[in-house]
């Protein structure tokens, strides 16, 4: 990472390719034979109803979960097969903002963001201070740096988590619903931040988000996931105009108020109540 500060030339990360990935949890198939590719240097949005496995898909890409079948290739290597050492090497390249913030509850906001730097680099204290403060400034929390996570609001905790994920200037960023809990203005500020990071660091960005309008602006490629399958993919404009009824239900559901709740799979209400 320090090299990045010295040289202007930044290496592009390779693409991530998932092939025929199937993943089940407690006997239920959550991802069913999925093949997608994350081209390098692009912003990819993964969208879809709640509970369809977007976060699961992301965890497969970061090596947190292993698929039952299929491969997750990065730079010619299958991530699930990596030894723990090479997995840690891979993870030095990536930044992850989890859906649950997973902040360290004993550390202050500042120390949370400084954590990955302290663990991996021996930086001079004043250099580290300015690096961390700059990132916190970007998410609007520089003055909250002495608070501890339990003193933060939901939206603030999200932004600390974002600052921590980007503090190492990774070459691939994973954001799991970065805009939840943010007011409309902050949402657009964060969107700009994500875009600027993406272009200046020449990174690959993977986002999970429900914001159709924002993704139209930001994403290069959109995948729509429903019931464990990719039901539509392509540029945002193409995808959001797709005639597929499931896509329509998902995309329009947000624009004209929810009519049809997208249910967790199982028996119907009538079956459940009257049997």
């Amino acid at each position: 990472m320090l090299n990045k500060y010295r040289s202007s030339e930044v290496k592009k990360p390779g693409p991530i390719t998932l092939e025929n990935v199937t993943f089940s949890r407690s006997g239920r198939k959550i991802l069913d034979n999925i093949s997608i590719s994350i081209p390098s240097g692009k912003i990819i949005a993964i969208m879809g109803p709640s509970g369809t496995g977007k976060s699961t898909l992301m965890k497969l890409m970061t090596g947190e979960l292993k698929p039952d079948v299929g491969s997750v290739m990065f730079n010619g290597k299958n991530i699930p097969d990596l030894s723990s050492r090479s997995l840690y090497e891979y993870r030095k390249e990536i930044g992850v903002m989890l859906q649950s913030n997973a902040l360290f509850n004993e550390l202050s906001v500042f120390e949370n963001v400084a954590f990955p730097l302290r663990e991996h680099f021996e930086l001079k204290e004043d250099f580290l201070q300015s690096l961390v403060k700059l990132k916190l400034e970007k998410v609007g929390l520089r003055n909250a740096c002495d608070l501890i996570p339990s003193e933060l609001s939901g939206g603030m905790a999200r932004r600390v988590s974002l600052a921590r994920a980007i503090v190492r200037d990774p070459s691939i960023m994973f954001y799991d619903e970065p805009f939840t809990g943010q007011d409309p203005i902050t949402r657009w500020v964060l969107l700009e931040l994500i875009r600027r990071l993406h272009t200046t660091l020449n990174m690959t960005s993977v986002l999970v988000s429900h914001q159709v309008e924002m993704m139209t602006q930001l994403a290069d490629v959109v995948y729509i996931l429903s019931e464990g399958k990719i039901i539509s993919s392509g540029t945002p404009k193409a995808v959001f105009k797709d005639k597929n009824p499931l896509v329509r239900k998902f995309v329009d559901g947000y624009s004209d108020g929810s009519k049809d709740m997208i249910h967790h799979p199982g028996q119907s209400l009538v079956e459940d109540l009257f049997k």
Binding site: E64, E89, R91, I94, L98, A102, N105, F115, P116, E119
Partner: peptide, 14 residues
Amino acid sequence: TSEQFASMELMSVD
């Protein structure tokens, strides 16, 4: 429970 171990591992910290 709060995924702190997972997030540590994601930062290459064991």
